[in-house]
Design a protein around this nucleic acid. Structure first.
Lengths: 106, 106
DNA sequence: TCGATAGTTCAATAAACCTTGAACATCGGG
DNA sequence: CCCGATGTTCAAGGTTTATTGAACTATCGA
């Protein structure tokens, strides 16, 4: 299920960016990914990521902050996320990952 | 593409068994997987595994021996295969992987 | 209260996927 | 030269998937 999730380019790009900013301890809003695709398509992918246990959502008012469930994943599938993210980082240019336009929290 | 391949339970089971017998340096025939599914369905999955570069086929007479392309994979996606196989081995019982009925080479 | 914003949900469509069975090609043994 | 065995290829089906736009809910600020 996790592999299926990460085999989709849009979702891999989301996870890739979540990981990048997670290490910078900056929370990302759903809207930060608006460049990736249409909003409803993103909601679809977010739901899949949540179902697969890859991502966690914190609701604050009208915006939702997403966070990678790194600890849970490392416990369940040790090393998997690191290996996949490392490979993704290595050919990030070939994959043409979109970048998030992060907006500072209010 | 590799992730997509491994996200299918049938193909993951094939790769899992290939890895198991590969370390025992025993080649597996396509027919060794006949318990997994119908022959034509297996041919379909074998083709996908070949396309994704996960597997290599050696033709000897009328039978085909399959081998994991471990070196190539480790070069392209370092650690990925090991991590996935380790996770697969850890809950092999939950996944209910079929076992190969290996027939000694003639 | 009104309007704008953030996301989700729903319905619909096109593409990809898995599975099946029948037909086919190929090799080895009698 | 057939026969049986090994796999592949093809056509058909049913299911899942990704994507889109429109409708909807909920929150915040003026």
């Amino acid at each position: 299920m996790v592999l299926d999730c990460l085999s989709d380019p849009t979702r891999l790009a989301i996870v890739y960016n979540l990981a990048k900013y997670d290490s910078a301890s900056t929370e990302l809003r759903c809207g930060d990914f608006n460049a990736f695709s249409g909003k409803s398509n993103l909601a679809y992918h977010f739901a899949k990521l949540r179902e697969a246990g890859l991502v966690q959502t914190r609701i604050a008012g009208t915006t939702r902050y997403m966070r990678l469930r790194r600890a849970d994943l490392d416990a369940r599938f040790p090393g998997l996320l690191d290996v996949i993210l490392a490979s993704a980082a290595r050919d990030a240019d070939r994959l043409q990952f979109p970048e998030c336009e992060v907006v500072a929290a209010s």
